[in-house]
Design a protein around this nucleic acid. Structure first.
Lengths: 343, 343
DNA sequence: AAATTTAATGAAACCCATTTCACTTCCGGG
DNA sequence: CCCGGAAGTGAAATGGGTTTCATTAAATTT
């Protein structure tokens, strides 16, 4: 089998210097047409591709960016990734996908690995950066690394790390969701799911309470039930709601997963959605439109989030000026689980 | 800010040669304890990490593997990826994720890119390798590349490319699904979805027909409706079934997406699942257990598929002997959409 | 005690590109 | 016809490691 040729081989065969070959490839200086064609013919003959490692080594840029996320099997993240990739492709970047599978320790491992691989930048989603009180260690780790590599935090807290961030306005999203329920006539609204030490939960609860207050409605703390962000926990918590003597007529779920769990609990109990209980989710994952009834939810604009993160990162890499904080506006997606008919 | 140190800096500060530092880092030759400690202390002091590009350049291995897949937002693929990553982590590999977003042209682009980046191996899923008649071009492209880089095809056809392959036995899966329906007493079974020029479709139809025949049941070709692999197409095709004067009592759907679309159509029509119509899917994506009724389906063992692909690739990279073809056994997952109660 | 190994280390080559610097030609302007 | 600048090219340095080869010091063998 023919082995990989190097630029030296091409140069020798074409009877020119390596610099000339390099110039032909990168169009970095004028080369006589005759020379260029001769070189090109050998490049084509051998299907020569310059070794990206060697190039990166000298150019000090790799065209690789790392993306760290907590769970690729949670459909929210592939959406973000898809958006990010769409944007990155045009700009000539490739992604290392680092899935921590919920394991916080791996965040540090991957951070270190990415540094080692000399990525041009890092996009960091979820995980520890979502804790309301993130460890000083992590802040230090990220800050230190950020002195060497541009980092963009997506939907992360960690404001004290003074990283660049792209976030969806979950507070606003929660307001949209709550107001929607209120506009439909609901006065007794519960909040379901989400760990209370995670920023996404806290922000939503805040927006929820705020909107209730703004509408002069009573906030009943016993109607805020926390838990994991999973389907089983959504179901479990909904069952708790259903056991209450006095129960809400609408439930605002921290995400689509819990909302689906909640729907299951309601349906099993033989109650109707939304007639007996209205349910609203958050994220607008593909699941939301797959379930029956289709789920009213708040779109985080996940693809947009990914695209924007890459945009910001790209500017950072080019040392252009960017805002420290970019906020994406969420959007209410009304479906059957609150209004009962297809919209 | 402190700039990235090189192995030369460490050597100079520690008063030894670069070779010695390299030996300390890689444990590739004995080094006196005193020397080692001195070197290590400087490595720690500066948090020195050797530049992976430089290392890869000489060692001719990068620890990177590329994975090309057609649609990361289709929940099947993240599952495969998660399995692959789990296995790859231990072995010290990192992934380039190349999402072609259904765009066949990008497959070639990414193939070329990955070669350029000097990945140690490539895992290729879906897309053009799933066409019943894949272009001679692609075969040539893959074959050529495969002479330089190990490639593993997952669930791909392309047997004529003489690549190493890992596949789920979709034929067997289809038999399991069909037999399940037959065992439940169904005699009138339809097949829904999937493009008829894609291998996953063809294999399933084959298994379906075979099982019907083996059970002495009639195969009615007009009950095999083809289309995309999407939710909307599932719904559309199911609506067609529902309009027939004589219609099946059970539907075998090409994948979970179409099954969900089918369920929607059935529910909208006011029919019950599985009492009026039983539905079975394929893939066992997370969607399957999210939907109501929960979907009976055939698990492709997606995580296992990913893990195995990496295993095979790893052996290829190490030039160990591997079977050309590894077959993963699918598994029937019985849920509510065929038997009507939680299992 | 002499002859061999083995341990421990450094110098230099190598991996494969890019880029600076220097040099030769060729061109148009004065 | 001479001069300055652009075109066109090559030699060599550079990037940051690994590895071979050579050398010396220490440990074994005989």
């Amino acid at each position: 089998m023919m082995f990989n040729k190097t630029i030296y081989d091409i140069a020798k065969e074409a009877g020119v210097s390596v610099s000339t070959v390099s110039r032909v490839i990168n169009n970095t200086a004028p080369v006589k047409d005759i020379t260029r064609n001769k070189v090109l013919s050998y490049i084509n003959k051998y299907q020569f591709q310059p070794n990206a490692l060697a190039r990166s080594l000298t150019k000090k840029e790799t065209g690789m960016i790392g993306i760290i996320l907590p769970d690729i099997t949670n459909p929210f993240f592939p959406e973000v990734f898809a958006g990010a990739e769409e944007e990155a492709r045009d700009k000539g970047f490739t992604f290392f996908l680092c899935n921590t599978a919920g394991n916080h320790g791996r965040e540090s491992e991957y951070l270190s690995l990415l540094r080692d691989k000399q990525v041009d930048g890092i996009i960091f989603l979820g995980g520890r950066i979502n804790l309301t009180r993130c460890s000083a260690e992590l802040v230090k780790e990220i800050t230190d690394l950020n002195h060497k590599i541009p980092i963009v935090l997506v939907n992360g807290n960690l404001s004290n790390a003074s990283c660049y961030r792209v976030i969806t306005d979950e507070f606003l999203g929660a307001k949209l969701a709550t107001q929607h329920l209120i506009d439909l006539g609901h006065k007794d609204i519960g909040f379901l799911g989400g760990l209370d030490f995670m920023v996404p939960t806290v922000q939503k609860v805040k927006g929820f309470y705020q909107t209730m207050k703004d509408n002069g409605l009573e906030i009943r703390k016993e109607w805020t039930l926390h838990g994991e962000f999973s389907i089983p926990d959504g179901r479990r918590l909904m069952e708790q709601f259903l056991l209450m003597k006095s129960k809400p007529t609408a439930i605002f779920c921290v995400n689509d997963f819990t909302a689906i769990g909640a729907i299951k609990a309601v349906v099993e109990k033989g109650l109707r959605i939304p007639e007996d209980i209205a349910i609203i989710g958050f994220d607008d994952t593909p699941l939301a439109s797959a379930i029956i009834p289709e789920l009213t939810t708040v779109s985080q604009q996940s693809q947009e989030l990914g695209r924007t993160a890459v945009e910001v990162l790209h500017k950072l890499i080019n040392k252009e000026k960017v805002k420290k904080l970019t906020v994406i506006k969420p959007e209410l997606i009304v479906r059957q689980s609150t209004v009962g008919k297809k919209v």
